[in-house]
């Protein structure tokens, strides 16, 4: 199993100008992108409409075909929007990397297991949906050795990460809020991307 923060830190170290469209675990203010990012201006946290980060990432990838876009997704989120795998692969975005943080639970609601957490074949689903390349990492060493290939091959790429669950029991309204929100990102990203 990979520590969530280690996975985010490694991806961030390889981002090279990529936009990160992040949700759920990967976007946790305590151990996710907000506390680890080295290029906040290219972070696009999705806090509304659970499960739709991958769709936002697809739209951005289609609009900016010369820029790499990484979606940092969650297993519970992806289960809620499985059709997105086909929607994404159907458009064949060469610059999109879909990274799944699989902790097998709904971590932000107290750690309840997601349906089929022990049986779901994520790589098989991504492959049969039509993703160009599929990767699986369940330890940091393998991820460190293999992530460069995943980030440089032609997409859409699916990267399945097995990460440690980090459970939150604090009610949402009492949790620390990230400084950068979806609103900040929507306001600032077009300028950073050179959009007129």
């Amino acid at each position: 199993m990979i520590d969530n923060a280690d996975a985010v830190r490694l991806l961030d170290s390889k981002r090279n100008g990529a936009v990160f469209v992040a949700t759920m675990n990967a976007n946790n203010v305590g151990f996710g992108l907000p506390s680890l990012t080295t290029n906040e201006s290219l972070d696009f946290p999705i806090s509304g409409a659970m499960s739709k980060a991958s769709n936002v990432a697809l739209g951005l990838a289609l609009a900016q075909p010369d820029r790499k876009v990484l979606c940092l997704d969650g297993d519970g989120s992806l289960l809620m929007n499985l059709g997105a795998l086909v929607t994404i692969s159907n458009k064949k975005p060469k610059n999109l990397v879909h990274v799944l943080f699989n902790n097998k639970v709904y971590a932000v609601t107290g750690g309840q297991p997601i349906p089929g957490s022990e049986d779901v074949d994520w790589e098989g689903m991504a492959r049969s949906a039509g993703y160009a390349k599929v990767f699986h990492f369940d330890n940091l060493e393998d991820m460190t050795n293999g992530i460069d290939e995943a980030l440089t091959c032609e997409g859409p790429v699916f990267v399945h990460l097995m990460v440690e669950p980090q459970i939150e029991n604090t009610p949402v309204q009492f949790r620390e809020r990230a400084k950068r929100t979806v609103h900040t990102a929507i306001k600032e990203l077009p300028g950073v991307l050179g959009v007129k």
Binding site: A49, N55, L62
Partner: peptide, 18 residues
């Protein structure tokens, strides 16, 4: 898309991307 809820999210990404 496969389901209508995807459309607004894809549109959001396209919009932010210009």
């Amino acid at each position: 898309v496969c389901r209508e809820g995807e459309t607004m999210a894809i549109a959001a990404g396209l919009w932010v991307g210009g």
